[in-house]
Simulated scan of single mutants.
Amino acid sequence: MNWYVVYTKPKWEKKVAERLNAIGIVTYCPLVNKISQWSDRKKTIQVPLFNSYIFVQILEKERNKIFEVTGAVRYLFWLSKPAIVRDEEIKAIQNWLSAPECYKVAVDKWQRGDKVILDSGPFVAHEATVQEVKQNYYVLVLESLGCILKVEKREE
C-alpha cells in the first residue's frame, strides 16, 4: 500500500487522523511539542509538523474513502498524479522526531565538498555533503532526503 498526502481543513489534522483511524485507514500525523504562551501561563502542546497535511496508507482503489470524513479536503498532487510518499521517507520523519534533541557527532576536520556518512542522531547512516564550514558549525546537505542539516562544533 502506498502512503498519500491528504490536505485537511486548517487546524483539523489531528481530528481527521483520528476519524480516519476509526474507520480503519492507517494514518500518520507527525506531531512536535511547542510551548504556547498565554497571558497567565505557558503550556507545552503538541502541534502537527506539517500544517494542514496528514499521511494516509491506503490502496489506490480505496482512495475516495477518506472523503467520508469531515475535514479531509483533497489529496496533494505532483505532476498531475496523487503524491506518493515512500516508506523510507515516513520512517525518516519518525526517526527524526523520536531522536533526542542533543546527540554527539564526531567531526574529523571536514572540508567543503566532503562526502560523509552520519554515525549518530536521527539521520544515522545517511550520506551528506559538507556545504559550508564555519567556526562554530558545519552545514550538511542530505540530498536523499532533500534537507539541510546544521551541525554545531563542540570542544570536548
Rank of each mutant, 00 (worst) to 15 (best):
V5F: 01
S120Y: 09
S80Q: 14
K65G: 01
L59N: 13
L140Y: 08
V133A: 00
V56A: 04
I35G: 05
Y75V: 00
Q37A: 10
K15A: 13
L149A: 00
V107Q: 07
L142P: 02
G24I: 04
N21L: 01
L59D: 15
G24V: 11
A92S: 14
M1T: 08
V26S: 13
G24N: 05
E132T: 15
E143G: 06
A125S: 15
K65A: 07
V116C: 02
V69A: 05
S36F: 09
Y28T: 01
E101S: 08
L59W: 00
K43P: 11
Q135D: 14
H126Q: 13
V69Q: 05
M1G: 09
Q135C: 00
F50Q: 05
K109D: 15
V6D: 06
R112W: 00
R41K: 15
L49K: 00
N33Y: 08
S98C: 10
F123P: 05
A22E: 15
Y7F: 13
N95D: 14
F123V: 05
R41W: 11
Y4F: 14
K61L: 13
P48R: 01
G146M: 12
V85Y: 03
C147D: 09
L49A: 04
R41Y: 13
L59V: 12
K9N: 12
E13I: 04
E13T: 06
I148L: 06
V6H: 04
Y75P: 00
G113L: 09
K104V: 11
V139Y: 04
S80V: 08
V26C: 10
S144V: 10
Q131P: 07
E68H: 10
W78N: 04
R112I: 15
Y28A: 04
N95H: 10
A72H: 07
Q111R: 14
Y7D: 05
Q57H: 07
K42I: 13
K81V: 09
C102L: 00
F50T: 02
A22I: 01
W3E: 02
P48T: 03
N2Q: 11
I54A: 03
D114Y: 09
K9D: 07
Q46C: 08
P100W: 06
V133I: 06
V105W: 04
E132A: 13
K81C: 02
P100I: 12
V5S: 03
Y75D: 06
V6A: 04
R41H: 13
N51R: 15
T129E: 06
S120H: 08
E127Q: 07
E152V: 10
L118K: 03
I117L: 04
W78Q: 06
R112L: 07
F55S: 03
Y4S: 06
P82T: 07
Y28G: 01
K134F: 10
Q57W: 08
Q94Y: 04
Q135R: 09
T129S: 02
T8N: 04
E155S: 14
S80C: 09
T129C: 02
L118F: 02
V105T: 10
H126N: 12
T70G: 02
S144T: 11
I84W: 06
Y28R: 01
K65S: 06
E152T: 08
V130W: 08
E156V: 15
V47C: 04
S98Y: 00
S80D: 15
V151I: 12
I117W: 03
L49I: 10
S39H: 11
G146Q: 08
L142T: 09
Q46T: 12
L142V: 15
Y7S: 04
R154S: 06
